[in-house]
Amino acid sequence: MERIKKTRAGQERYEVRLSGSGGQGMVFAGMILAEAVGVEDGKYVCQTQSYGPEARGGTSRSDLVISSQEIFYPKPQELDLLLAMTQESCDIYFPALRENGTLIVDSGLVTQLPDRKVYGFTFTRIAREQLGTPMVANIVALGTISALTKIVSRQGLLEVLKRRAPRGTEERNLQAIEIGYELVRKKKAKVVKSDTGVG
């Protein structure tokens, strides 16, 4: 697992935001991640979501706080990990990411990158090409998050998807996790700094 920061209250705390636009399944992905972390991996987890007009039109997001200790404040204060599936969500939420936090983007959709280390994967395109639908891009992204950060176990994600994926799509969702892992293993990520341009 990635190095976990201690808060000023001496609490261990890891904060995640999954962001994109309405319809990209960020809330669903957040629930899957939270259940895998909490129920399967046995950690404390608290998941909240953006809710309201914003979720219908522009950006949609799901936030998680993960800890091995009881979580007091339920919302993120300084993100450790940001997943951005659209340019807009990247632009809006990037400032909430801490200095050495992990930024993962769908590099097919996010082209203007901030001036820092970024993991880029073409989640949506890969999902469409390899699994026949862009609908599971969110789950591919969960696979890469697991592979990159170890914040959630691969087994945990698979177990949760087995029971939570809509009927008939279980197999596709399990494959999506594997593809996410594969992307990291084969170093298909474009690890870029934007001052060198997007490759």
Binding site: M31, A34, V39, Y44, T48, Q49, Y51, P74
Partner: peptide
């Protein structure tokens, strides 16, 4: 309240 009602926890 809205946050307690909508948040998910283990």
């Amino acid at each position: 309240d809205e946050v307690v009602g909508h948040m998910r926890e283990r």
